[in-house]
Structure formats: C-alpha cells, structure tokens
Amino acid sequence: MKLINQTVWGVASLLSLSFATSAQADFVIPTLQQIQDKQAAIRFCNDYADVAIEQFAKSKTLSCGFSGPRWNNDRQGQFNWCLTVLEPFAITERGFREDALKTCQENKSSGNNPQNQISIPQACKDPTKAYTSVKQINHHFRYETNLTSPVQNGLISYDYNRDRKADYVFLETKDDSARVAMCFSQGQRYRRQVTDITFYSGSGGLGSSKYEITQQGDTLVVTIDEFEHNAGSSYRQVSYRFDPSTSKFKIIKNESDVYPVIYDGQPYPMGAPVTPKLF
C-alpha cells in the first residue's frame, strides 16, 4: 500500500510540475523596448484617430461627398484599425484623405465651378478676363487654409446710387491674387470699378491678412485682420456710406488697434492695416 501511495504521489507531482512548466512557458514578460514600442503605437494611433475624425468633419463642411470606411466619425474604429497595420500604411492613409480634401477644396473655390460663380451683368466682369468673379476662395490666414467668402454671401447687391437698380460688390481672383470690385448701374448700362482692396490669398504663416466686407443697412463695412509671426496682430474696421452726388464712398467711422508681441518689456513696433479708399 505504501508503495502504491508513493507511486500515486509521484505521478501527481510530475503532473503538477508539468502544468506549472506549461503555464510558465505561456507567460512571457515583455521587455522594456516592447513596452515602449506599444506605448508609442498607442500614442501614434490616438493621434491618427483624432486627425481622421477632423478630416471627416472637414469633408462634411466642404460637402465633398466622400463615403466608405475611410471616411467616418468612428474614432474607436479608426484607432483599432491603426493598431493592426504598420505605421507607414497609416501615414499613407492619412495622406490620402488630406490630398482628397485639398482637391475637393480647390474644386469648390475654382472659377470653373458653376456653384462658385456669381450672377452679375457681363459688363461688370473683368474685360481682360484675367480675373474671375467667384463667391469664395481658398484663403490662407495665420497658419490655416480655409474656404471663405471675403464678400458677404459671395455677392453684395444694394442700390447705392438710389436709381432703383441693383449695384454690386464682389470678389475677383487670378491665381493667388484676390481683389474686390464694384459695379454701378447707369441707366441701361453699368460702370465697373476696381477697389483698392487687394490681397494675396496664397500667403499665410509668417504674414497674412483677412478681409470681411459686409453691408449693414446703408453702410458698407470693411474689416481687416492682419497677423505677423512673432510680431503680433492688428485690425481695422471702416464704415462707408455712398454719396450719389459724388458717386463715391465717404468714411463715416474708422477704428483700429494693434496687439504686438512684447520683447524685453517693450512692444514690437507694428502698425494697423491701411485704410482702404475703395477707389
């Protein structure tokens, strides 16, 4: 009996040792490098998912019409997918969406896009055909590129000369240049006038300007924001009222201010935007 008990105990001990050895073999302690790599992958994929959601939101704002698994607001899904692929594949995917958004935005701002064209008399358009009349442009301000309409609603229609016919304020572009033009009715004809509001829409980053031209009652309001890298920002807002007797705009209010960066206790010397004379 003793021999049998010893034999049974011996077998049990061997089985116990076998199970323990198997469990120890399945439990692998990760190295410090593996832990760091995993943490880096999680950080990268969190950033990837955040950007993917931002890109999807921008596609909706631009009405690009993109669809499919590449375009959605499922952040967890984007994050999980990122963890299953090598980093270069995720970078390529993010770049694809960025390129698609850039193309969509360029098409939206193109003068060849019927939805970006404005309805004005032919006599009001640039006779040289160098500039194209559009509702909105790709405009670089500070460090961002946005699709924007510097002129309210893309076209201001108002009877400035009080002859019961519409006069127009609109935007024209040529490559990266932009300017504001006007057109006034004269009987059955129109008088086209280019203002002195001009800007380089392709600039940005180190120095850039943003214009907003709005009609508020019988007053035309021009707001200019300027930004200079490591220098500060400034603005000017000018209100004009058209005088039919002189066929010109008269300034009725002019405000400006500057917000310079402070160096060694002294403000960086910068000026406010120049007051437009219109023409």
Rank of each mutant, 00 (worst) to 15 (best):
L32V: 15
L32K: 14
Q33V: 14
Q33I: 03
Q34Y: 10
Q34S: 15
Q34P: 08
I35V: 12
I35W: 02
I35T: 11
Q36L: 07
Q36F: 01
K38P: 00
K38A: 15
K38E: 13
Q39G: 03
Q39L: 13
Q39K: 07
A40I: 05
A40P: 00
A40Q: 09
A41G: 04
I42G: 00
R43V: 14
R43L: 14
C45E: 12
C45R: 06
C45L: 08
N46H: 07
D47W: 03
D47P: 00
Y48S: 10
A49Q: 06
A49T: 07
A49E: 03
A49F: 06
A49N: 06
D50H: 04
D50A: 10
V51G: 00
V51H: 04
A52L: 09
A52S: 15
A52W: 09
I53E: 06
I53P: 07
E54F: 00
E54Y: 02
E54D: 14
Q55R: 04
F56W: 01
A57R: 09
K58M: 04
K58D: 05
K58C: 04
K58E: 15
S59D: 03
K60M: 09
L62G: 02
L62A: 05
L62H: 00
L62Q: 07
L62Y: 04
L62T: 05
S63D: 15
S63Y: 03
C64V: 04
C64D: 02
C64A: 13
G65I: 08
F66A: 07
S67K: 06
S67A: 13
S67E: 10
G68T: 12
G68N: 14
G68C: 08
G68Q: 13
P69A: 15
P69F: 05
R70W: 08
W71R: 08
W71Y: 11
W71I: 06
W71S: 04
N72H: 10
N72D: 09
N73T: 08
N73G: 09
D74E: 02
D74K: 02
R75S: 15
R75E: 13
Q76S: 08
Q76L: 06
Q76K: 09
Q76C: 04
G77I: 05
G77C: 10
Q78G: 06
Q78L: 07
Q78F: 05
N80Y: 01
N80R: 05
N80P: 02
W81L: 12
W81Y: 12
C82H: 05
L83N: 12
L83Y: 11
L83W: 07
V85H: 08
V85P: 06
L86A: 13
L86G: 13
E87P: 11
E87L: 04
E87K: 14
F89T: 12
A90P: 09
A90C: 11
I91T: 12
E93R: 11
E93G: 05
E93I: 00
R94I: 08
R94E: 12
R94G: 11
G95H: 07
G95F: 01
G95A: 10
G95R: 03
G95Q: 13
F96D: 10
